[in-house]
Amino acid sequence: MENNVLKHEASLKIIYDMIESAKSRIGRNYFYYLFWGYLVAFTCIAEFLLIKVVQYPQHYLVWPILMTLGTLVTLWFYLRQKRAEGARTFIGTAMAYLWLGWMISLGILIFFANMRQAYGVILPTAMAMYGLAIFVSGGLVNYKPLIWGALLAWISGIIAFLVPYPVQLLIFTGAVALSYIVPGHLLKIKSKTM
């Protein structure tokens, strides 16, 4: 690119082109949606089967094992992506803080709910919190499927408060499939057409 003096129309075009090319593209982040969507859905089904079919008393262990694994994979992927990207966007930073905050809040919820043996509130509250996180994510990047997904997560959270724990697992599976896996696949398609 030469460093010429510009015509006014050309200046405007440069500004437009550069701002467009530096914009954060939500489509690039479909990995997170698909990975966490399938991982949480799999964990819910695995625990449901451990309760109902295997009748394994420590059925809840699938959560710490798979979620720790998921966090490590996400961290590895995030650091690799961050290194390759070259620019930090405001939306990217907001997303990182939002989900980090979400995980800290979830940790507090799980710790105190277990301490007070209020196991039944963990999944419904997590669903409501998850609704908040994808609502904000969808709003930040102006992506409607996530906003609709948030609505679904909140409704699922309300229903989950009224049913027994194994049924909560099935509701969570459905909510995650519709509000995370489906938008994830839509984003994957979108990213390939961009």
Partner: peptide
């Protein structure tokens, strides 16, 4: 009011920070 400096500023206005390599790739300079 010069092509390259305007490109750099336009790139930086939309991001929190950018590496030299990123600016190099986007501007083609």
């Amino acid at each position: 009011h010069s092509q390259l400096r305007l490109s750099v500023i336009s790139l930086l206005i939309g991001v929190k920070s950018a590496t030299f390599t990123f600016l190099l790739e986007k501007t083609g300079a």
